[in-house]
Amino acid sequence: MAESKLKRTQRENHKRYKEDVKREGKPFFPYAMFHDTIMALVVVLVIIALACVWYFTAKHAKDGVGALGPLTSAKADPGTTSFVPRPDWFFYFLFYLLRVFKWPDSVFLGTVGIPTILLVLLIGLPFYDRRTERRLLRRPVAIVTAILVVLSMGVLTWKGAIAKESVGAENVQFVPAWAKKQGFEDNAKAVAGAKVFASLTCMTCHAYLGAGSSGPGPDLSAIAKGGRGAQGFADYVAQPSKFGNNVMPAFADIGADNLAALGEFLNASKGATATKK
């Protein structure tokens, strides 16, 4: 009953709208189209201006990084790299959600769960907000929700933008301290593995003795307790998907020597407490 009343109001409102527009409205051309054309020109000019600032400041900068970033970074290199993975800016909020949900059980929420729920809520909006009221001050729930959504997206985007991922070159300096704490100073292969670990992208997803990133991967300080053994760790890192891990990238490209060293290093990582013997 209420449903049919709502439908009748909606239809009457729209009929009245159509009549009003026909009687009182202005033709799209030239009036509205004039504004649209000016706006279109502004958009094209802004895009051209961004392209010019990006190109000319980068071209004349000594390090090739202009006001809007470099023209390109170095050529893609799947093997050795200490590159910090970072998505385009409009995915920063998703990128940061991964840090909110910790590996491994709830990471699925951040990668797929929450985005799917948000998308369903977005698409379904006209179906759960069924009132005919359009004025903002009479839509308190809508206005509060909108403010919360904008704020949280803004904060997540900003946090994603400034999230500090450690850079390989900085992490290598920790290696001697790690070797001392973990007690593998005299194991040359493990020390070499620690250097590989520090200079690859490992620490953008993993923490190690307080350094690196706390997510989405687990803290590896005491990973040896898992008891995989040096060879087991090397195999795991080479192709994590073989072990049911579909999140971590494969590192088979870094070569057998690096993998073996890395395995030795992980197998020597018994947690800082192990040094008290």
């Binding site: 390109t72 970074s73 170095a74 050529k75 893609a76 290199d77 799947p78 790299t81 590159f83 910090v84 993975p85 970072r86 998505p87 385009d88 995915f91 998703l94 991964l98 990471v107 699925f108 990668t111 797929v112 992208t201 998907s241 579909n246 999140v247 971590m248 990238p249």
Partner: peptide, 21 residues
Amino acid sequence: PWDQTAYWATAVGINLNATAP
């Protein structure tokens, strides 16, 4: 563009897709 930024962002992005059930 196949530079480092592109490659590693996509590597992570694809791996995130892989977490879907």
